[in-house]
Nucleic acid binder design. Structure first.
Length: 613
RNA sequence: CGGGGCGUAGCGCAGCCUGGUAGCGCAUCUGCUUUGGGAGCAGAGGGUCGUCAGUUCGAAUCUGACCGCCCCGACCA
């Protein structure tokens, strides 16, 4: 029996000023965690209990499709040299030396390690597929740890890796993970979305992120009621048709004097046109950091990239970077004038020499797909103080390629059902993706296939951030409480403020399922009833915390709320009538129930809250 | 790494401008009262004022360097 009077649950009346986001404040105030340094936290009794509950769910579900292992967190340099990531990880990896001067790192992830095991142990296609996972501490030297447990330097990750003989096998392994992830997050009580993600730097083919909408998040995602969901790095949308401008003069590109009019808005006002009738020019340098010799020979280590977009659209650098095949940085004005012999602010498509093919030398010119088929646009003239009218893509200039390189906007129609997109911040709690051959190939893993031929296995990689599940659950609940409170206390900012800092965890991951609050331990009858009820609940397999502290009732109620436990049984005045009070914090419903029915009623409440999740 | 803010008791803060040897609330401990929504009264304990150096008769206070933490940005398998 867990008795509050003997536990270390250091709740705080006020949150330290360092804490900004709701989950951070609440985790500190509830005594779940304490900070050791930037991005480093100690998980105290309650925090550790919640984490353990999450881990147990993850483990139980993962065990249905995979085998658990435990790999070293401390890795020798050599293991990371082979894949090229010793250099590739850059500053983000913690590095150290042993007493002999040998270099080591603290692993950020374990592709290299599983691949090296696979390479030395897997011989035949008959041994495939394999799915291996672990729940391990990961280390990342984040440039900016922040938001409590949301972005830290040491955290728990469930990472899994699949090895298959062919793509069909990988598809199956990937699908298994998707299904298991949905079960895990559902059991953890989260409202989540699986979104299409950019698989960019890991070089895979398909990738989905599991996201929870919350303002504390760092990613932006777009979703709609038709079931479409994507990271904005990858999201697309359908656009309403635009009526083009009528041609002027002979309909050919025509110079117009636009002195000092550089921005889209300035030109729009000056010429009396809409932004949709303009073409925006974005110039970048792409650096091929891990280019091979062949590529360097073909297009150089760095090359100019120009993208043309509709005047009211925003460039999506992730999309452009994927096409350009490297890291982008905006061109400096001097670089623009040297490279294109045109002033920044008046850069335009006509006269620009585009590479004929992305793999051929020259400037990579990308026309955003939204401009395809448009006519009579306004564009920069590559001449100080001038723009061009009547610019019609494909007639007046040819880009290297046409591609979607813009960012979607809130309210645009989603590409599958045409429903309006909702764009919001979200926290990434899991990520699955098809890695492909990157590691198996570079590290030389192979097995014999049916025909006795050496075959490189194809890999998948699948992560879950354990702490982020806890954080997201708190953020999600706190947001709900805040919204309710704002609705109920519209005129009272103080009440809103205090309720804003409340939450209740799903029973599956809460450190305890129920708190039994003895309102006054000095009354022998209350104390005895509390002990008895708590024991009965425990007997029934329910995780119960008995608040037997010699504190005032108010203090105990506040603390019970602070620690986020979803149910509370208060033993008080009504005991004289043989009743206690059951509070369901998830529904905010209070019932007076006969003591004899407590176990039964709570079990019913627990199972109904589980099915609602 | 760029920009901003902060560092004084466990937590929240004042004092710094104008140098004179540290204070308030909460928490903690003791006693009495109180006991269903963060109690009241009385008393007590607790601080190298982030670190180092400098200026000064004297530094929490002025100056410099460094360290740490938070926020915005860059970055982010």
């Amino acid at each position: 029996m867990h008795r509050w009077s003997q536990l270390f649950i250091p709740t705080l009346r006020e949150a330290p000023t360092d804490a900004e986001v709701a989950s951070h404040k609440l985790l500190l105030r509830a005594g779940y965690i304490r900070q050791l340094g930037a991005g480093l936290y100690s998980y105290l009794f309650l925090g550790n209990r919640a984490i353990n509950k999450i881990v147990a769910i993850v483990r139980e579900e993962m065990d249905t499709i995979a085998q658990e292992m435990h790999l070293p967190a401390l890795n020798p340099r050599e293991a990371w040299e082979e894949s090229g990531r010793w250099a590739g990880m850059g500053e983000n990896m913690f590095r150290l030396k042993d007493r002999r001067g040998a270099e080591l790192c603290l692993a950020m992830t374990h592709e290299e390690i599983v691949t090296s095991i696979a390479r030395s142990e897997l011989r035949s296609y008959k041994q495939l597929p394999q799915i291996w996972y672990q729940i391990q501490t990961k280390f990342r030297d984040e440039p900016r740890p922040k938001s409590g447990l949301l972005r830290v330097r040491q955290f728990l990750m469930k990472d899994a890796y699949s090895f298959d003989i062919d793509e069909a096998g990988l598809d199956a392994s990937y699908a298994k993970h998707e299904a298991v992830y949905r079960r895990i997050f559902t059991r953890c009580g989260l409202d989540f979305l699986a979104v299409d993600a950019d698989s960019g730097s890991m070089g895979g083919s398909a990738s989905q992120e599991f996201m929870v909408y919350t303002d504390a998040g760092e990613d932006l995602i777009a979703s709609s009621s038709s079931g479409y969901a994507a990271n904005v790095e990858k999201a697309t949308s359908q656009l309403a048709p635009v009526a083009d401008l009528a041609p002027t003069g002979d309909g050919q590109p025509e110079l117009v004097h636009t002195p000092e009019q550089k921005t889209i808005d300035e030109v729009a006002a000056f010429l009396g046109v809409e932004r949709v009738h303009q073409m925006k020019t974005m110039a970048y340098i792409v650096e091929h950091l891990d280019a091979d010799e062949k590529q360097i020979k073909a297009v150089g280590k760095a090359r100019a990239v120009v993208a043309f977009l509709r005047g009211d659209h925003q460039i999506n650098e992730t999309k452009l970077s994927a096409i350009a095949g490297g890291v982008l940085r905006p061109m400096q004005p001097e670089e623009i004038s040297v490279t294109f012999n045109a002033p920044a602010g008046y850069l335009g498509p006509i006269g620009l020499v585009a590479a004929p093919h992305p793999k051929k030398p020259g400037t990579l010119v990308v026309l955003d797909a939204a401009l395809e088929g448009r006519t009579n646009l306004i564009a920069g003239a590559n001449k100080e103080g001038y723009h061009l009218r009547n610019v019609t893509p494909m007639r007046d200039f040819r880009p290297t390629l046409v591609a979607d390189v813009r960012s979607v906007n809130e309210g645009e129609s989603d590409p599958i059902g045409g429903k309006p997109l909702r764009i919001g911040k979200a926290v990434e709690i899991g990520h699955i993706f098809k890695l492909g051959y990157r590691y198996s190939k570079s590290m030389g893993a192979s097995v014999l296939n049916k025909d006795g031929k050496e075959t490189t296995p194809i890999m998948g990689s699948y992560g879950i951030g354990i702490e982020r599940i806890l954080t997201a659950a708190i953020e999600q609940s706190a947001a709900k409480f805040a919204a309710q409170s704002i609705a109920q206390n519209a005129g009272d900012p103080k009440a809103v403020q205090s309720a804003t800092e409340s939450y209740a965890l799903p029973p599956s991951i809460a450190p305890f399922q129920v708190v039994v609050t003895i309102t006054n331990v000095r009354e022998a009858a209350l104390l005895a009833a509390g002990e008895e009820i708590a024991a009965a609940l425990e007997q029934a397999g329910i995780d119960v915390l008995l608040d037997d502290r010699d504190e005032r009732a108010g203090v105990k109620f506040k603390d019970a709320e602070l620690i986020g436990v979803p149910f509370r049984i208060a033993i008080g005045k009504k005991l004289a009538e043989g009743k206690v009070e059951l509070l369901n914090r998830l529904t905010n419903r209070t019932d007076d129930i006969p003591t004899a029915e407590v176990v039964h009623r709570l079990q019913a409440a627990l199972s109904s809250s589980a099915t609602h999740n």
